[in-house]
Simulated scan of single mutants.
Amino acid sequence: MEIRELSVPGAWEFTPRQFGDDRGVFLESFKASEFEKAVGRPFDLRQVNVSTSAAGVLRGIHYTQNPPGQAKYVTCVRGAFLDVVVDLRPTSPTFGRWDAVVIDDENRRSVYLSEGLGHALLSLEDGSTVTYLCSLEYTPEFDGEIDAFDPAIGIEWPTVGRDGRPLTFNRSPKDAAAPLLADLNRTR
């Protein structure tokens, strides 16, 4: 497995080795020993989520108040997404920095983000499906969101899908009404 730390400290990209033959492909999507070596601690799995999205669906920027925070290990099992990580840790020297990785059903990369980081996904084709391994069960009172189009963050969202057709962004009403980064309570 190839492991690369992203430019946002506390976030990593995991690219598995794939073994294919005429029957299909096998890979290790998550391996605790490799994860722990890279991240420096075990992953405490508490919940697994699956989400399927049409092309242009933009989910996020979502975060969980820290503490307790929620770490995520995100893998695309079908289709393609742009996976975006944003540093939302109030005292971090990289507060507001973002990085992105294309995760898809070809390279089968995964992204890990530590507690305190924000997360957004843009589906790059219809029927794209992602799984999230989560370190905290869903706890709505800890959830928050930041506007994915906040110019202070400046995420460069693609406007064309994996098939070359233009993307029309589709967000939930809650995500569309999300506050700006400047409105985030940095004393949390």
Score class of each variant (00 low, 15 high):
63 Y>D: 02
63 Y>S: 03
65 Q>K: 15
66 N>F: 14
67 P>A: 07
67 P>G: 02
70 Q>C: 08
72 K>P: 03
72 K>T: 09
72 K>N: 07
73 Y>N: 04
73 Y>C: 00
74 V>G: 12
74 V>E: 09
76 C>R: 04
76 C>T: 15
77 V>C: 03
78 R>L: 10
78 R>I: 02
79 G>E: 12
79 G>L: 11
79 G>Y: 03
81 F>K: 05
81 F>R: 01
81 F>E: 06
82 L>W: 06
84 V>H: 06
84 V>L: 06
85 V>W: 09
85 V>M: 08
85 V>C: 02
85 V>G: 06
87 D>S: 00
88 L>D: 05
88 L>T: 02
89 R>M: 13
90 P>C: 11
90 P>V: 10
91 T>P: 00
91 T>N: 13
92 S>N: 02
93 P>E: 05
94 T>G: 01
95 F>C: 07
96 G>Q: 11
99 D>F: 01
100 A>G: 14
101 V>R: 04
101 V>Y: 05
102 V>H: 11
103 I>T: 14
105 D>F: 02
105 D>T: 06
106 E>V: 15
106 E>R: 14
107 N>F: 01
107 N>D: 14
107 N>S: 12
107 N>L: 12
108 R>I: 10
109 R>F: 00
109 R>C: 04
110 S>I: 10
110 S>W: 10
111 V>A: 03
111 V>S: 00
111 V>F: 01
112 Y>K: 02
112 Y>R: 00
113 L>G: 04
113 L>S: 07
114 S>M: 04
116 G>H: 12
117 L>I: 12
118 G>N: 10
118 G>H: 08
118 G>P: 11
119 H>Y: 03
